[in-house]
Simulated scan of single mutants.
Amino acid sequence: MATPESRPEVTIERRVEWHDTDAAGHQHHSAVLRWVESAEAELLRGLGLAHLFGHAPRVRHEVDYRARLWFGEVVRTRLWIARVGRSSLRYEFTVRGESGVAAEGALVIAHVEPGAPGATPWPEDVRSTVAGLVGVVDR
């Protein structure tokens, strides 16, 4: 089984832009999810799984906000695959600002074939790619 240190992960760096802030001057809650989705895109491309875009809607997210991030601040978002199920996948993430962890949480996606009324099992190429790297695949 893969250890947390060997699971597929990516870290991206962004700067808090003006459109990422709210009326109080710090990051808007939605900015964290945009940074997480940017990290997800980079991770999937790196794994050769970019074809999942359009087939893996978000079904759940949770975020614990720990600190504020301010306009111009450098932000590092680390995202990793924590668990893979028959038709879903759980990412976990941390968002760090210049003073430490600003947010942490999880994002769950599900695989859905076009026209299907609900979640469908992951294609074999996804299962084999992720299973070999993550080591946590529920059958």
Rank of each mutant, 00 (worst) to 15 (best):
A2H: 03
T3L: 14
E5I: 01
V10L: 09
V10D: 07
T11N: 07
T11S: 15
R15S: 04
V16G: 05
E17D: 13
H19P: 05
D22V: 05
A23E: 11
A24K: 10
G25K: 04
H29Y: 13
S30M: 04
S30R: 03
V32P: 09
L33G: 01
L33A: 01
R34W: 08
W35C: 05
E37T: 02
S38F: 14
A39R: 14
E40I: 00
A41S: 03
A41N: 02
A41R: 08
L43A: 11
L43N: 07
L43I: 11
L44S: 07
G46W: 08
L47R: 01
L49I: 06
H51N: 00
F53C: 02
G54H: 06
A56S: 06
P57T: 01
P57M: 05
R58L: 06
H61Y: 10
E62K: 08
Y65W: 13
R68F: 12
L69R: 03
L69T: 01
W70H: 15
W70Y: 15
W70A: 08
V74K: 14
R76W: 06
T77V: 12
I81H: 12
R83Q: 13
V84I: 15
G85V: 13
S88A: 14
V95H: 03
R96C: 12
E98W: 01
S99L: 09
S99E: 06
G100K: 10
G100V: 09
G105H: 02
L107D: 13
V108T: 15
I109E: 13
A110D: 03
A110P: 06
V112H: 10
P117Y: 09
G118R: 15
P121N: 08
P121H: 05
P123R: 03
P123H: 07
E124D: 14
D125G: 09
D125V: 12
D125I: 05
R127S: 09
R127H: 04
S128D: 10
T129C: 15
V130N: 00
V130Q: 10
V130P: 05
L133M: 00
V136P: 07
V136G: 02
